[in-house]
Write a protein that binds this DNA or RNA. Structure first.
Lengths: 195, 195
DNA sequence: GCCCATCTATACCGCACGTTACGAATGTGT
DNA sequence: ACACATTCGTAACGTGCGGTATAGATGGGC
């Protein structure tokens, strides 16, 4: 059977470019014209390769979690709770201040939106909740290992750290520098774990 | 001279309804159809009374700062730094979890956006920066009054609290409850001021 | 060398957006 | 009661959106 004409662009490279655009402008703010221009392909090629805008965004999200957002998974594997928090805060301070597109895709992708993007907003809410749950479970393990004070509440601690990370993302979107975010991380670590 | 036909709606009530819509959907996500329907007026009436969408949003922002966001100014007037932080965190936990429209207009109004809304995004960044500056100046005063430890950095403290508040806003947008946000506030206060 | 599945590019679709002309309706000032 | 400034609702404008039909270009398989 014939294989047909091979595609003239790299799906991975194109997806990376799409990720940059979504990261900078959010899901709704990124137009198909923005995306195709950055990806260097035409609209029919995009639709053939990625389905539609929503599927493209989900694939960009997955790629974000494995690439620029990978420090989160790394942090969860650190041996102690303190090292988990140290790693995640410092790496976030670094990752959130990439000069080209500051902030976090999972936060600014669709914090609020019109009716058309409601399902994307829900998806991002679910992903943020999942990350917080993973952190909570990591802290529960730390409690079982006597790696955190006996009275501590893993859920509260996870919510606190998650809020801090999301706040750092907003700060980064507002132009905060690497050093400023690192200052927030240091201040948080100075009071970890709580008494 | 003749005064002409009087308008049949209340500008204040209409602006309040517009604020609700912007709060829930953000600047770009709120369509003129959404706004006019909620405000109970037609599009020409809206344009005659408020200029255009951008001016309407700015007026809604001002009203937000004087109404639902008024707790921030209140907090800055508390006599001690600890009372400032206590008030702002607890009141934020309350204000951010209004059941109808959770979160903070200044955060989710336009964290990221398309090219058309770039000036609105800049405006929100400036307002958030201004709030942080006011908090920093309040902490500088506290330092001068020996109301904070001598070595503390007012700018770092203000950034830390601001990030926490913005993170709470993201948490609220994700469905966090009043009690959960209060937990974050309590955890923060337990470590205030830093050693 | 031919076939044909697949990709590429132009051009277009219907729709919703923010915004505005226009004429009818309305209450005030004289 | 008349004149007029202003608001009202309808209906439309131009533009850009996400998405697609269609026709031509391309190269692998036999």
């Amino acid at each position: 059977m014939a294989m047909g004409r091979p595609r003239e662009f790299s799906c991975e490279k194109a997806l990376d470019q799409a990720l940059q655009v979504f990261w900078r402008k959010g899901y709704e703010g990124a137009s198909m014209a923005d995306l195709t221009e950055a990806m260097g392909i035409t609209k029919p090629s995009l639709y053939a390769a990625f389905g539609n805008k929503e599927e493209l965004f989900r694939k960009a999200l997955d790629r974000y979690a494995d690439g620029p957002g990978g420090y989160y998974r790394e942090a969860l594997n650190k041996p102690t709770a303190r090292e988990v928090v140290t790693h995640v805060l410092y790496q976030a301070a670094e990752a959130l201040t990439h000069p080209d597109n500051p902030g976090c895709l999972a936060v600014q992708g669709a914090l609020s939106c019109g009716d058309a993007a409601e399902t994307i907003k829900q998806e991002l809410m679910a992903r943020r909740a999942k990350s917080e749950t993973e952190l909570r479970e990591r802290f529960e393990r730390a409690l079982a290992e006597n790696d955190l004070p006996a009275g501590a509440d893993a859920a509260d601690l996870a919510r606190y750290i998650t809020a801090l990370l999301q706040g750092m993302a907003v700060q980064a979107a507002g132009g905060a520098t690497h050093a400023q975010l690192r200052g927030i991380a240091e201040m948080t670590l100075r009071n970890w774990p709580p008494a």
